[in-house]
Every structure is written in C-alpha cells, then in structure tokens.
C-alpha cells in the first residue's frame, strides 16, 4: 500500500468521527485532526483503534499522542507496517 492508498483509508476511518465533514473533502496530510476535523480526544482513541483494526498494527499510547494531523496517522501506519 502506498501513501495515497493509506490516506484514502484513513479518511474513510475518520468520516464517522469528524464533526466537520466538509473539511474531510479537501483533507491533506497537513490537516489537523483536532482543529480542522473537530475530532476530540475521546474520539481520537476510536480513530486509533479503527486504524489498528484496519491495518493490523498495534499502537502504543505514546505513538497515539504523536498523531495530531492526518499525515501523522498515515506516517504511523506506514512505519508500523514497514516494521512488521
């Protein structure tokens, strides 16, 4: 899976948790999960668990803390899959 494919999957995971669905339309790697997609910390946990399920990776609390943008999520997935 390349970065574009992972990004598309991440956007699909984010959809049910974003309170700003219009921001998802023009979503880039720099889009902030909290400020632009309006995903609060409790929902962010669900996003990370959704990523674990979809990509078959395990995320620690420390790694989850570093996920603040869509690009951070994509990078985490690519790195975790690369390390597996």
């Amino acid at each position: 899976m390349d970065e574009k494919q992972v990004l598309a999957e991440v956007i699909t995971i984010l959809k049910p948790f974003s309170r700003a669905p219009e921001a998802l339309v023009n979503c880039t790697l720099k889009t902030s999960l909290r400020d632009e997609l309006c995903i609060n910390s409790a929902r962010l946990v669900d996003v990370v668990l959704g990523i674990e399920d979809k990509f078959g990776i395990t995320v620690t609390d420390e790694q989850a803390d570093l996920v603040t943008t869509v690009g951070d999520a994509v990078r985490l997935i690519l790195e975790s899959r690369g390390a597996a």
């Binding site: 990370v48 674990e52 609390d61």
Partner: peptide
C-alpha cells in the same frame, strides 16, 4: 498484556 498498548488500556 503490554501496559502501553492503547487497546488494552481502553
């Protein structure tokens, strides 16, 4: 169980 695993914590 890894105590730092987010899923296990939740």
């Amino acid at each position: 169980v890894d105590p730092s695993g987010l899923r296990a914590q939740i």
